[in-house]
Amino acid sequence: MPPLASPPCYAEELDHGVQGAVPRDAQQARDVARWRRAERERLTTERKGLSVATRAHVSFLLCERLRALISDLTDGVQGRVIAGYWPIRGELDLRPLLREWRAAGAQLALPVVETRAAPLVFRQWTQGATLQRGEWSIPVPPASAAQVTPDIVLSPLVGWDAGGYRLGNGGGYYDRTLAAMSAPPLTIGVGLQAARLPTIFPQAHDIAMTWIVTEQGVQPTREPLK
């Protein structure tokens, strides 16, 4: 993959605090949004450009790292509600690991957009369930499936930075959802090591992941690890 892009030219004009760089005014907020769109397009294009074999290998490695992390953090997945995702746009495929966890007693869920620009809901994903097409034609459990509250949320990354902040697909759904939850779950951002950025220029609505995991393992962040 080509080297990561340099920070935008306005980087020195940003305030830097414990939560990262925050734009001083509305124009800089627009600049950050424009930069994010460009990086999102670049990184998504690079990810889609991976061969089928490479993506399968990287997905396998990521599942191995996730399995080890969850084993270290918990006394087992039995009885825990784990929210995964259905891979789109070249995202890494965690479904074999999710099915393994379900066989070990975990309850699986998938995120669903029921209302645009609102928090996601999580519907139970049971073995053998017939999925339906949801927003953007992403397969989701049917409306009859039980809504659940996840203990662990696996969130796909387009990009990420050392503070644990994620660059997603641009809808803001995960940030909006996590902000609305009364008891924050364990959040794990999952993606490519090559998608690491110097910063995503986090803003007030951005919520850092508890952990970032790539095919190379658990990545250190500036935030205290929990």
Score class of each variant (00 low, 15 high):
residue 160 W to Y: 10
residue 96 P to L: 06
residue 23 P to W: 03
residue 70 I to R: 01
residue 13 E to Q: 14
residue 115 T to N: 14
residue 34 R to E: 14
residue 10 Y to E: 13
residue 103 A to C: 10
residue 179 A to K: 15
residue 38 A to S: 11
residue 26 A to P: 09
residue 120 L to Y: 05
residue 8 P to F: 05
residue 53 A to F: 09
residue 171 G to I: 01
residue 131 L to K: 10
residue 40 R to S: 06
residue 197 L to M: 08
residue 134 G to K: 12
residue 76 G to C: 09
residue 75 D to Q: 07
residue 160 W to A: 00
residue 103 A to I: 01
residue 71 S to W: 13
residue 23 P to A: 08
residue 168 G to D: 04
residue 181 M to L: 15
residue 28 Q to R: 15
residue 163 G to M: 02
residue 86 W to N: 08
residue 182 S to M: 04
residue 142 P to Q: 10
residue 150 P to N: 00
residue 55 R to M: 04
residue 169 N to E: 12
residue 183 A to R: 10
residue 92 L to F: 14
residue 197 L to C: 01
residue 28 Q to M: 13
residue 116 R to V: 14
residue 124 Q to F: 01
residue 103 A to V: 09
residue 219 Q to S: 05
residue 86 W to H: 11
residue 64 E to R: 11
residue 130 T to W: 11
residue 143 A to E: 12
residue 153 V to A: 07
residue 35 W to P: 10
residue 219 Q to M: 15
residue 17 G to F: 04
residue 35 W to M: 05
residue 73 L to K: 05
residue 52 V to A: 15
residue 58 V to Y: 07
residue 9 C to V: 14
residue 119 P to A: 00
residue 3 P to F: 02
residue 222 R to M: 13
residue 50 L to M: 14
residue 137 S to N: 15
residue 177 T to R: 03
residue 129 A to H: 07
residue 165 Y to H: 15
residue 55 R to W: 08
residue 185 P to A: 03
residue 152 I to V: 09
residue 202 P to T: 07
residue 20 G to V: 05
residue 69 L to Q: 00
residue 113 V to T: 12
residue 47 R to M: 06
residue 79 G to W: 05
residue 16 H to A: 14
residue 2 P to G: 03
residue 187 T to E: 02
residue 201 F to Q: 01
residue 53 A to W: 09
residue 167 L to Q: 06
residue 212 I to V: 14
residue 185 P to D: 08
residue 80 R to W: 04
residue 98 L to Y: 08
residue 41 E to K: 11
residue 140 V to P: 08
residue 89 R to G: 07
residue 147 Q to L: 13
residue 141 P to K: 01
residue 88 I to C: 08
residue 64 E to P: 09
residue 79 G to N: 07
residue 60 F to T: 13
residue 124 Q to W: 00
residue 174 Y to C: 06
residue 44 T to D: 05
residue 115 T to F: 08
residue 113 V to A: 09
residue 41 E to A: 12
residue 110 L to N: 07
residue 43 L to R: 01
residue 180 A to H: 05
residue 37 R to Q: 12
residue 118 A to I: 03
residue 118 A to L: 03
residue 81 V to L: 00
residue 198 P to S: 10
residue 134 G to V: 12
residue 214 T to H: 01
residue 85 Y to G: 09
residue 41 E to V: 05
residue 192 L to A: 04
residue 186 L to M: 11
residue 207 I to H: 14
residue 102 R to F: 04
residue 202 P to F: 06
residue 83 A to W: 02
residue 74 T to D: 00
residue 26 A to R: 11
residue 43 L to A: 02
residue 42 R to N: 03
residue 131 L to V: 09
residue 103 A to Q: 12
residue 50 L to V: 07
residue 113 V to Q: 14
residue 11 A to V: 09
residue 128 G to C: 07
